[in-house]
């Protein structure tokens, strides 16, 4: 059981154009919590800062300011090399995230060895097969020696999930884990993630641009727009009763056959350029707050009273 507190995260990139340097704020005072057994969906368009947050959480980027605190159940903070044992990531593109040169076994065995989950070769092999079976890649004996190009996209993503869980991770960052997969396979992979989460009481951050799966797959939704959190709350509340203009726009844009075809031709009522990302609607508090620091504190305070 591991909990993640993200407080006031800021990430600036400096962009060089010619001789001038420009600062681009990708993530602007974002705070969120991940708790065991719950899934938080991070929703937003490309460039909204979703992936930057994922990279910071998996230590591939350093934040400009702000903190990421990871703590075990008993309150022990997780630091140093222990961090990556607890927090792992599933990448978007299963065709790119596995090394074409190495066998499936290599991909799962390495994290086991790095984090000293197993010691002998036989033990490692057995553990690899176990992991493969957990993600429904059977018969594991025949899958393990294969190389990535011999598997389908869905199978590869299962391998990637097994790899992420191999160190014994309790926090899973899933960065658009199904958007590159064929539609008929997506549900299977999401359901797999759901099952693993229940079994291990994982804390999951589900990053996506797909509102429909965000609603059904997560407990809580955080809507990100231009690096800021503009709306947060329980999944159904955010999708069915959006308050912020940007969330409304997203909900309008998502295909939804049940709302009828006349919706296509209906003109957008919300002017995209007029969207204000300095305010945030917090469904937990039931009120508007300033985006950034105060919103986050308020949200956490509000949730403290709620059963996790």
């Amino acid at each position: 059981m591991t909990t993640v507190h993200v407080t006031d995260l800021v990430k600036d990139y400096s962009i060089r154009s010619g001789l001038r340097r420009r600062r681009l704020r990708a993530v602007d005072h974002v705070s969120l919590d991940l708790v065991p057994g719950r899934t938080v969906a991070l929703v937003g368009e490309s460039g909204s800062g979703k992936s930057t947050i994922a990279k910071i959480l998996t230590r591939m980027e350093k934040p400009t300011s702000g903190t990421v605190e990871v703590a075990l159940d008993d309150g022990t903070p997780v630091r140093g090399p222990m961090y990556l044992r607890q927090v792992q990531m599933v990448f978007q593109d299963p065709f790119a995230s596995l090394n074409p040169f190495h066998s499936i076994e290599h991909h799962i065995a390495r994290p086991l060895l790095i984090h000293e989950r197993t010691r002998t070769a036989a033990q490692t092999h057995e553990r690899v097969l176990e992991m493969l079976e957990r993600v429904n890649l059977t018969p594991a004996e025949t899958i393990a020696p294969r190389r990535p190009h011999e598997l389908s996209g869905g199978q590869r993503q299962r391998v990637a999930i097994a790899r992420a869980l191999a160190p014994g991770a309790q926090v899973l960052i899933a960065d658009e884990p199904v958007s590159m997969l064929d539609v008929s396979i997506r549900l299977g992979v999401l359901n797999l993630l759901g099952r693993l989460q229940r079994e291990d009481r994982l804390a999951v951050l589900y990053i996506t641009h797909d509102l429909a799966t965000a609603r059904h797959f997560s407990d809580e939704i955080v809507v990100l727009y231009r690096g800021r959190v503009v709306e947060r709350g329980p999944a159904d509340a955010v999708i069915l009763d959006p308050h912020h203009d940007y969330t409304k726009l997203l909900a309008q844009a998502a295909p939804d056959p049940e709302r009828g075809p006349e919706r296509v031709t209906a003109e957008a009522v919300i002017d995209r350029d007029a969207i204000d990302n300095s305010v945030c609607y917090d469904h937990f508090l039931g009120e508007w707050v300033q985006a950034g620091t105060p919103a986050a504190r308020g949200a956490r305070a509000g949730r403290a009273g709620q059963p996790a």
Partner: peptide, 14 residues
Amino acid sequence: FIRSGVDETEEDQA
């Protein structure tokens, strides 16, 4: 969909 306990069978076996 999801969390209803339905199977996640190996629909993508090539």
